[in-house]
Each structure stands twice: as structure tokens, then as C-alpha cells.
Amino acid sequence: MKERLPNIRVRTNHGSMVARDGIVICFFMHRSHGEVIHAVWRALQTYRRSIPSQALNWYVDQNGDFQPLDDKGWEHIRKKMLERRWPVACGVDIEEHCDEVGGYNFEYQGYWLDAPLFMYEEGTTCAVSFTLPTEYLVEHGPARVRALALELARELPFSFGYASLALVSSDGDWFMARDTVRELRDRYLGLDIYRLGETSQHIGTQARGAYWLTFLGLPLLGRLGGLEVLRRRLPFPDVSLETLPPLEGERVLVTLGEWPEAIDTAEQERPSPQRLAFAHLLEPFLHEERSGWFSLFGDDKEDMRRWIRRFCP
């Protein structure tokens, strides 16, 4: 399957690269920042151990400027994440490059959900993402990427999470080349387009879609009927279901095949039956993007809705 992985570099008219192909591993946790942040910090250390030592080099400070991620920078990140005072939100953005998008990026959006309700929208959720370049997947193989996603998941009290081929872009900078991105979106059905900070403000405990790796936690797993219902509704040889310790009855990983799929419609590729069946199962619980970032594709909420439900019959 690796020969079908796309090689994508999206550049502006001035030549700056604002998006590229990669893998995103993302988790949404419907708990307060204080409840999840130590687990998120441990997951970040797991991610650091799994990638090249110089893969993360810059962080974004409170003014939106890039600062070098040296020892002083890491201490700043540690204090910001672990010592953030109630009720101030915590946003962390760590990147490989400061002048263009790289394959290795970490982002965290943390909120004190026990703060006064007027501070956040209904459905606001702490969220974290980790990215890898596609070259990492090709070099180490899908089993290694899946093992990393599992190791990250074990640390996190997620309600929903996923790993997918994606259009990797720092804070959604792909909007500067949105016409190209729209073409890629429509060509590659398996290519995730995400903006963590926006989706985390309203996804709550809903799902975002059916992915190569999909992590289901409570209460979403219960709404789907639990593990036995998943086994009955997804009776495909290429689908594996795995419970995650220590809460084995409360968290499940659904894997659709050995490799992530781009689903290139230009090559007449079609979504697999297992992905369509899984998407149908998830459809009643898919969220609706409410903020304006996706409207950059045409200011059309129905267009956005169709994309989120592109695998639903």
C-alpha cells in the first residue's frame, strides 16, 4: 500500500510551503485541563522518544512569535502546561520548522471545563495532536505507527481519537492556498483536513469520522452499543478491534486495514466496505463544525457537512 501514498507539497504563490502529506494522531478528551494535563505531558514525552531527537525545534510564544525550543524553551513549555492557573486556557504549539510546515508537530488545546459556562462554547473539549511525515510511515511501517498511537492513547482519557493520512499544516495555514486544498480534499477521500483549535471548541463527546485508526471511549462507545455491537456490525477480515488497558471495557481501538488509505478518486479508488459500514455506524454521532474555518472552502455549511459525511451512504 505504500506505493499509493500521495506526495503532497502545498505552496503559496510566493513559494512558501503551508501544507504537506503526513499522519495526524489526534485525541479529544471531554475533561478539564487539570484532569488531563499530566497524561498529555507524559504522552508528549512518549512522542519525543519516538521521533528523531532534533525533530521539534520551535514553539509559539504568547505573542504568536516563534522561539527556539532549547532547554529554556522546554522549561517554559513544562511550566505553561503543568502550572497553568484556573481558569485560563492553555494552548501549546510546537513545530519542526519556523519558516514552513514540517512533518513533526505537537499541538494541545486545554480548557478548564469547570470554569463559568460563559467562558467556553457548549461542547468545548481538551484536545491534542501529534503529526508524523509520511516518510516516517514508509521507513518504519504501519505497525510502528499503530504501536505509537496505541502508546499515546493509553496515557489519555479520550472520548474520541484517530490516526489518519492528513494534510499536515501548522494551525490550519493551508487556508493561504485553499483552492489547491479544495482540489486535494475532493481527490483524496482518505486525507484528513483538520484544525484542532476550532474543532476542540464544540466536538464534545461526538465523533469526527471513520479513520484508519479510530479510538472510542466513553460515553461514545456506550452510545454505539459497546464492543459486542461493534464486532457484530463490523464483521470484516481487515477490521480489528482491540480494548485498551487498564479500562478494557471502556476504550476500544478500531483498525481498518494494515495501511492507511488515501482513496484517490482520480485513480478510481473507492472507500472499502468496512470504512463505509463503520461510517454508517458512526453517522448519528458525527459532530457539525460550527465555526468559520471550514467555510474557507466556499462559505457553504452544506459543503462542509457533506465532507464530514463523505463515507456515509
Rank of each mutant, 00 (worst) to 15 (best):
I8M: 13
I8D: 10
V10M: 10
R11H: 08
G15Q: 05
S16F: 06
I23Q: 11
I25D: 09
I25F: 10
C26P: 08
G34Y: 06
E35I: 09
V36M: 10
A43S: 15
Q45P: 09
T46Q: 13
T46Y: 11
T46R: 12
Y47H: 10
Y47M: 13
R49Y: 15
Q54C: 09
L56F: 07
N57L: 09
Y59K: 01
D65N: 06
Q67R: 15
P68Y: 03
L69E: 00
D70W: 05
D71E: 05
K72E: 02
K72L: 10
W74V: 02
R78L: 02
R78A: 02
K79D: 00
K80M: 04
L82M: 01
E83Q: 07
W86F: 07
A89T: 01
A89G: 02
C90P: 00
V92E: 00
I94D: 00
H97F: 03
C98F: 01
E100M: 04
E100Q: 01
G102F: 04
Y104N: 04
N105H: 08
N105L: 07
E107H: 06
E107G: 07
Q109S: 09
G110L: 01
L113P: 02
D114S: 01
D114Q: 01
F118R: 00
M119F: 01
T124D: 08
C126I: 10
C126S: 12
C126H: 14
T131S: 15
L132T: 15
P133A: 15
E135D: 15
V138I: 15
V138Q: 11
G141M: 15
G141W: 15
R146H: 12
A147K: 15
E151Q: 14
